Amino acid sequence: MELIIDVLTANFLGKAIWLWLAFLGIVGALLAFDLGVLHKHDKELGVVESLVLSAFYIAIALVFGAWLWWSMGPTSGMEYFTGYALEKALSIDNVFVISLIFSYFAIPAKYQYRALLWGIIAVLVLRGIMIGFGAALVQQYEWVLYIFGAFLIATGIKILVVGEGDNDVSKNPIVRFLSKRMRLSAELHGSKFFVHKPDPQTGKMVRFATPLFLALIVINIADLVFAVDSVPAIFAITTDTYIVFTANIMAILGLRALYFALAAMIHRFEYLKYALAAVLVFIGGKIFWNQLVGKLDPAISLAVTLSLIGGGILFSLWKTRAAAGDPVGHGGLGAALAASDAKKAIAPPVGESR
């Protein structure tokens, strides 16, 4: 018994092992409840249900943050809430890319939620690796924070001046690589990622990946690309690995629930990217301020971050108010699915890419 207690109270990345296990247990329970109970059968998630489920995940994240505030102090609590707000806002851009990916592979809405939930497992592992690597770098070489800060400032300025680049999925090198080197079924098979079919050349039964599996792979690769921005950004807020990891994962969990509501009105957040660019510049500049002048009060970081994000959302909603009555997007993923026919006209079906 003493050995178990010693193991659970041992330090891992700055926190007791039981804290890490408790958080992973919460995440596992939420995923099991979501996938095994709420969405045991494939169905399209409506906007109202999406908002209700998202509110549930946000409430869990807020309660967890309140517990951090109470148990670890106001500084840890404010750092968590700042990181959570930042990751949540940055993930909105991810929604647009995910909708394009589902549209390109013509994935019906009723299969999308299950794919997104399974994607969380991969995200947990990949984000965990990236955060662990970043924590090791910062602990061993503190000057790496300056690189993070400069990168965030450069990224923010690039978004403000140049934009975010081409999001055409058909030009994605990963899509082209996998499409040429995997056995891919040209059609969906429900929510299955793999099916057994006769090989066109030999007639033998072999395993084919479905478009749903390929979409899942591309979505997780896209998440890695977004993590290149978000992980340095949250390390600029705090170097506490536990707070970095928990804020990241809580934001990602909620994103899957909020995806269908956001995808239906993503056109209403047109100007949010400029607010996010300003947040990245602020967070990057905060690193240099902390190192050269003195640590900035976490309350100021939280206030500025929330003000910029909230201002960007409100300004976007105000500027795009004329589009509020646009029926495009009704039902959850309307805008993306409505564009799928146009996308198919310029992109070959998956099964014909080999």
Results as ranks from 00 to 15, higher is better:
V206N: 04
L224R: 07
D229L: 04
L212F: 12
F226Y: 10
I217N: 08
V195Q: 02
A227V: 00
I234G: 02
V206P: 12
P232D: 14
M182Q: 12
K192I: 04
R207P: 02
D223P: 14
P198F: 07
L212P: 11
I234M: 03
L224S: 12
P200A: 03
D223V: 04
L216W: 07
D199T: 10
R207F: 15
V228H: 09
V218S: 05
D223M: 07
S185N: 06
V231K: 10
D223I: 08
V225K: 02
D223K: 07
E187K: 13
M182V: 13
V225C: 06
D229Y: 10
K204P: 08
A236G: 15
A227T: 09
T210G: 01
F208A: 13
M182H: 09
G203K: 08
P232L: 07
M182G: 05
P200C: 10
G190W: 02
A209H: 07
K192S: 08
P232C: 13
F194Q: 14
I217D: 00
A215S: 02
L214Q: 03
S191D: 13
M205T: 08
V225Y: 10
M182I: 06
L184D: 02
A236M: 05
A236V: 04
I234L: 09
K192N: 11
V231P: 09
A233L: 08
A215N: 00
P232A: 11
A209C: 05
F208K: 01
P198T: 01
K197V: 14
A186V: 09
K204Q: 15
K204G: 14
A236S: 11
T210K: 02
A227S: 14
R207Q: 13
D229F: 05
Q201T: 11
G203F: 05
P198V: 00
A222P: 03
S230R: 09
A222Q: 04
T202C: 05
R183S: 15
F194R: 09
A186Q: 11
P198E: 02
D229P: 04
L214G: 05
K197W: 10
P200N: 08
F208I: 08
P198G: 01
F226N: 12
H196Y: 08
I217R: 07
V218D: 11
I234D: 01
R183W: 08
P198Y: 09
I217H: 06
V231S: 13
V195M: 03
A227W: 04
E187D: 10
F213H: 04
D223W: 08
F193H: 10
H196M: 11
A227H: 06
F235R: 07
L216M: 14
I219H: 01
F226M: 05
V228N: 13
S191Y: 14
E187L: 12
G203S: 01
A227E: 07
V195E: 08
E187M: 06
T202Y: 06
F194S: 12
I219P: 00
S230I: 03
K204H: 06
M205Q: 13
L188V: 05
V195S: 11
A222T: 10
D199M: 02
F226K: 05
S230Q: 12
L212H: 06
N220C: 01
P211H: 01
F213W: 04
R207A: 11
V231R: 14
P200R: 05
E187C: 03
F226Q: 09
